[in-house]
């Protein structure tokens, strides 16, 4: 189950963060998302030599915490998508698909002519999608 998704801007500021748990760990999830940016930074700054392709946006598993798995996605505009899930057995392809759809939703949201790039996303449709 996906417990948290986040869109992080290129200054590492949160653009959109939403958690889907009833438990009182929203703050904890925020911490996890924030910490995962370290891994994103590291991966982006030191790309693996054996990495599949240069333009790979999907960063894969960022780091496993005790209860969660954190996946990352790095767009060309340096906007990062973070996904936190409690499922311990996730297939990469599923995550990839999710991110692709998420990316599309994000593009739709920021295509709003009234949206200022770099500001928080307040689109209702985005929340639904």
């Amino acid at each position: 189950m996906i417990v948290c998704v986040a869109v992080v801007g290129h200054q590492n500021n949160p653009l959109y963060i939403e958690s889907f748990t009833d438990a009182d760990d929203a703050l904890k999830l925020h911490h996890i998302v924030h910490c995962s940016l370290d891994v994103v930074d590291e991966q982006v700054n030191n790309p693996k030599k054996s990495g599949p392709t240069l333009n790979e946006t999907f960063l894969g598993l960022l780091y496993p915490t005790e209860n969660y798995k954190v996946y990352g996605y790095f767009t060309n505009t340096k906007v990062k998508f973070i996904l936190v899930t409690t499922d311990l057995d996730v297939r990469d392809t599923d995550v990839r698909n999710f991110f692709r759809r998420f990316h599309a939703a994000y593009v739709d949201a920021v295509s709003n002519p009234f949206h200022v790039p770099g500001k928080k996303i307040t689109s209702k449709t985005f929340e639904k999608g």
Partner: peptide, 10 residues
């Protein structure tokens, strides 16, 4: 610096 308001709040 990074604008994490909820964390900053805490």
């Amino acid at each position: 610096q990074e604008g994490w308001v909820t964390l900053l709040w805490e």
